[in-house]
Design a protein around this nucleic acid. Structure first.
Length: 436
RNA sequence: GUGAGUAUGGCGUAGUUGGUUAACGCGCCAGUUUGUGGCACUGGAGAUCCUGGGUUCGAAUCCCAGUACUCACCCCA
């Protein structure tokens, strides 16, 4: 027989059971938190018509998208969850209630060269709030409170949600006549933490930005102090550009209201270097860092955009949202041993039959499941030793052996596999549940 | 798209002046121990040494090509 080597494509994550259990737990916590804030679930197809997915596109996105023909259809795999959302809202505009709050957790695809912690197929966990015509700025302030609740829920305390406003940066660029280069400059500024101040200056010089302008940009992003102090310093820079002033006002409002939503100052701050590479953000932008693990980069980011679905509808649909790249986040947490995948089974109990007639063991399992106990019956004809070894290897916490004696006497022993101790009780699901 | 590196049982690895039965750990199977797992001991199964070609009396080892994977850049989650 000509065997095919079993392999998984580069850039695609595949986990062992213990890791998958942990991954699913994280995914579930994220989902529960999103729902607690009233976000509605949404699931859209992984495959869309290329025309729809590439309505905007251009540049890198176009190069990285998986695109293929099936018959006469020109198809593509979604590369994020925002474009499908835009299509969905435009298509179902009449059936949705605005502001439309939706979450979506799903896989997206990017055909780029894989590298450490970077995948071609990965989960994004998105929330967005979409307004009809307008969306009040206070929504921008609620977002950090969701991030805050979420990371608390995931077991983190020492994290910082960094907040900035694109209008401030864009206004600054306008005021120094660098509006045309704004996307490029933003990208460079965004890298300051990684490459350092000097490298940023070098890159700006390559863009033919004048020294005087570079100095302005640098002294701007080097503004220090608390969130309120930074805002005050921005106001006192003497820049009169309209966009700039609007940005400051927005940022000020957001900061005040973030506090209203209960996020402590220890977990958020204004950071003027946060720019986000994506060019569709037009106002508030967010990035979240785990302070003890800065090397992870931003683990949750997003922002405000002026018009979600301009390529699909005339309706004006401003929105604000965030995304967590769960696959990468999980990979890195695991790599740094911040999380431990120590559960190898999801069974609470393994029932081990040592009789021919499986009626009683199967009935007991059904009874246990009915009252919420994850129960598994060992169904292969092996020696008792092998059956116990199975429970041991999967670290199933309890075992119950059922044979002729147990059925006759109506008494069983619940064995704690960690301590090795057994507790005798009645052959009844309720009694067993009390023990485990 | 650009650059560098790696490829040996299921997994992690050893294996260079080219030399005959490819080694070790983990895992797997069996036994010591016929209704009680983990520990220990004993034994066992399991390898187209990535693929194709070349050099050589002889290649896991040297050369060429291909493929895959990894890392970095670009970009991004």
């Amino acid at each position: 027989m000509n065997r095919v080597e079993p392999r998984t494509l580069s850039g695609f994550m595949e986990l062992l059971p213990n890791e998958q259990i942990l991954f699913n737990q994280m995914k579930e916590k994220i989902q529960k938190t999103y729902e607690r804030f009233g976000f509605l679930p949404l699931d859209t197809p992984v495959i869309e018509s290329a025309e729809v997915l590439l309505a905007k596109a251009g540049g890198e996105t176009e190069n990285q998208i998986y695109r293929f023909q099936k018959g006469d259809n020109d198809l593509a795999l979604r590369f994020d969850l925002t474009v499908p959302l835009a299509k969905y809202v435009a298509k179902n505009y009449g059936n949705l209630s605005f502001p439309f709050r939706r979450y979506q957790i799903g896989k997206v695809y990017r055909g780029e060269r894989a590298q450490k912690g970077r995948y071609r197929e990965f989960y994004q966990c998105d929330i967005d709030i979409i307004g009809d015509g307008e969306l009040d700025l206070i929504n921008d302030a609620e977002i950090p409170s969701i991030i805050y609740t979420l990371f608390k829920e995931l077991g983190f305390n020492d994290f910082t949600i960094k907040i900035n406003n694109r209008k401030i940066l864009n206004g600054l660029f306008e005021s120094i006549n660098q509006k045309d280069n704004s996307t490029e400059i933003l990208r460079i500024i965004d890298k300051i933490e990684k490459i350092g101040k000097d490298a940023v200056i070098e890159e700006l010089k390559k863009l033919n930005v004048k020294d005087e302008q570079i100095n302005k940009i640098i002294s701007f992003i080097e503004i220090t102090g608390s969130s309120d102090e930074k805002i005050e310093k921005l106001e006192n820079l003497g820049i009169t550009n309209e966009t700039y002033l609007k940005g400051i006002n927005e940022l000020k409002t957001v900061v005040q209201n973030v506090r209203l939503f209960g996020v402590p100052d220890s977990n958020f701050m204004v950071d003027l270097t946060i720019a986000r590479g994506l060019d569709y953000y037009t106002g508030t932008v967010y990035e979240t860092f785990l302070n003890k693990y800065r090397e992870l980069g931003s683990v949750c980011s997003g922002g405000r955009y002026e018009n979600l679905a301009e390529y699909y509808t005339d309706k004006s649909l401003p929105g604000v949202g965030i995304s967590i790249g769960l696959t990468r986040f999980f990979y890195k947490l695991n790599e740094l041993n911040i999380i431990k995948a120590d559960r190898k089974s999801i069974s609470d109990v393994l029932i081990i039959p040592v009789v021919e007639d499986l009626k009683e063991p199967i009935k007991l399992a059904a009874d246990l499941r009915k009252i919420g106990v994850n129960t598994e019956v060992y169904l292969n004809d092996k020696k008792l030793k092998a059956k116990l070894k199975y429970a041991d290897k999967l670290q199933i916490p309890y075992t119950i052996i059922i044979g002729e004696d147990e059925i006759k006497s109506n008494k069983i022993k619940v064995k704690n596999m960690e301590t090795g101790e057994s507790i005798e009780t009645e052959l009844s699901a309720e009694k067993i549940k009390e023990i485990i």
